[in-house]
């Protein structure tokens, strides 16, 4: 068969075109990041031309939608911190226990059943968790704590803990699974029990991987919106009391966009200032989390 040079050339042009299109798809994601950073920083810069950055970080009140405007982000940070902390308190021990059980104890059959169910827990739309927190968990908690108001940080915090549990359990389990069998065998040879191997060998060896799972889960909790918007209330509140109603950064953004806010006003720009805070926090945590995961993988590669 004679291959003539023009068909080779056509083939080459076709190949190069396809490669260029595929490269375009890949580079598109970089534009998305650039877009996010560009939009956030532009409007945030505009915001800080009207509000001093010192007030933003030191004022203890957040009332941009009132006539008497205060722009202290502390109450929103506090609300976000409170709900996320409750979520972590619930999810961390449950997640570790679940991952130790699944990685060290459970039979393959049990793993095959439980892991998909945990994944479903992560796949439930968050608006449904909000309904569940407001109309099931809060009334349940009120039976134990009669003083608990209808909107509070505790109930969405607990539900959020269940929601982020699959992140912790699956990432931690991956980390524990990656611990070399030889380390376990060495401990068994010295007469350790399974429990001792799990807690004195496997968990310490997988520690950076487990920490990464916590950090990525917190980042998810901080960015969670509908659950807290429905069940935690709409009152900016500088408190660490889980029994009170709080407003998170995400709830505020939703509240503003549900109202009739004109573009270009200071109320409109607050969305971007709060969004920037949220972005920086989650972005920082994600970077640390992924670095830890990567380092962990390299240790046992």
């Amino acid at each position: 068969m004679i291959i003539n040079s023009s068909s080779v050339q056509i083939r080459k042009i076709k190949e190069n075109t396809v490669q260029a299109i595929l490269f375009g798809c890949a580079i598109f994601s970089v534009f998305v990041t650039a877009g996010i950073i560009g939009v956030l920083s532009f409007e945030t810069f505009e915001f800080f031309r009207e509000v001093s950055i010192i007030e933003f970080f030191t004022d203890t009140q957040w009332t941009p939608l009132f006539t008497q405007k205060h722009f202290g982000i502390a109450p929103l940070l506090c609300g976000t911190f409170l709900t996320s902390a409750i979520a972590l308190i619930v999810a961390a021990p449950l997640g570790i226990l679940t991952s130790v059980y699944l990685s060290e104890y459970a039979s393959p059959r049990v793993r095959r059943v439980i892991k998909p169910i945990l994944e479903i827990l992560a796949g439930v739309p968050t608006v449904i968790y909000g309904y569940f927190a407001l109309l099931f968990v809060t009334p349940l908690l009120q039976k134990v704590l009669p003083d608990l108001p209808g909107f509070n940080a505790l109930s969405p915090g607990i539900v959020m803990g269940i929601m982020i549990l699959p992140i912790i359990s699956s990432l931690s389990e991956d980390a524990m699974y990656a611990v070399p069998q030889s380390l376990r065998n060495a401990a068994y040879a010295l007469g350790s029990s399974k429990l001792q191997v799990s807690f004195k060998v496997v968990i310490p060896s997988a520690f950076s991987g487990i920490t990464a799972s916590f950090i990525l889960a917190i980042s998810r909790a901080i960015g969670e919106t509908m659950l807290v918007a429905i069940a935690a209330g709409q009152m900016p509140n500088l408190t660490l009391n889980p029994m009170e109603s709080v407003m998170t950064m995400t709830t505020f953004i939703v509240q503003v966009s549900l109202g009739d806010t004109q573009t270009g006003t200071i109320e409109y720009k607050t969305i971007f200032a709060v969004g920037t805070m949220l972005f920086l926090l989650t972005f920082g945590l994600n970077i640390i989390g992924h670095k830890l995961r990567k380092r962990f993988r390299e240790v046992y590669a």
Binding site: E224, T282, I287
Partner: peptide
């Protein structure tokens, strides 16, 4: 960049 984008809260995409 793609790994990081996967971790950006959905509400930030709403702002964008």
């Amino acid at each position: 960049n793609i790994t990081n984008l996967a971790g950006v809260p959905s509400i930030i995409y709403g702002i964008l």
